[in-house]
């Protein structure tokens, strides 16, 4: 977890330094705001990983001498086939197209999107097939 956090924290400190230089060079609000946001984007997850990396033992994937058997067991839960990402994608697209064609498109789109969200929650709770 250390290297991961250092990568993000490096991005954050680079953004902060550049934002500072850029501000005193140009006094441009827009660019400085974007660079500051870039720094914060690195700081938030980077800080979180850094906080954790000091509190947890190195995982098998952090240890150069780890054996494959050190990581034996369940990796995680991976959902199987599901129709809901497709329904949600279609719903999101139709909702977005309301920006072009008018409100009626969003009615269909939101209906699909909401049913997809409900569907995926039910599916996750059941842990079963669609």
């Amino acid at each position: 977890m250390k290297v991961e956090s250092h990568l993000l924290l490096f991005m954050a400190s680079f953004g902060a330094v550049i934002a500072l230089i850029y501000w005193f060079f140009s006094y441009d609000d827009g660019g400085t705001a974007m660079l500051t946001a870039f720094a914060l984007l690195g700081l938030l997850p980077g800080g979180y990983y850094f906080w954790w990396s000091r509190r947890m033992a190195p995982r098998p994937e952090d240890r150069p001498e780890a054996k494959q058997s050190d990581g034996a067991g369940v990796v995680g839960a991976f959902p199987g086939s599901s129709i809901w990402p497709f329904v949600l994608g279609l719903g999101a697209a139709m909702t977005a197209l309301a920006l072009v064609f008018g409100f009626w498109s969003a009615i269909f789109g939101l209906t699909l999107a909401v049913s997809a969200v409900i569907g995926v929650i039910v599916e996750s709770r059941r842990g079963g097939a669609y």
Binding site: S69, V74, A77, S81
Partner: peptide, 19 residues
């Protein structure tokens, strides 16, 4: 189906997991 993926190791069985 939600599937619990096992990490393969030299000790695990070679046949495909039930999915």
């Amino acid at each position: 189906m939600t599937l619990l993926a096992e990490r393969p190791s030299p000790l695990s069985h070679p046949e495909e997991p039930e999915h």
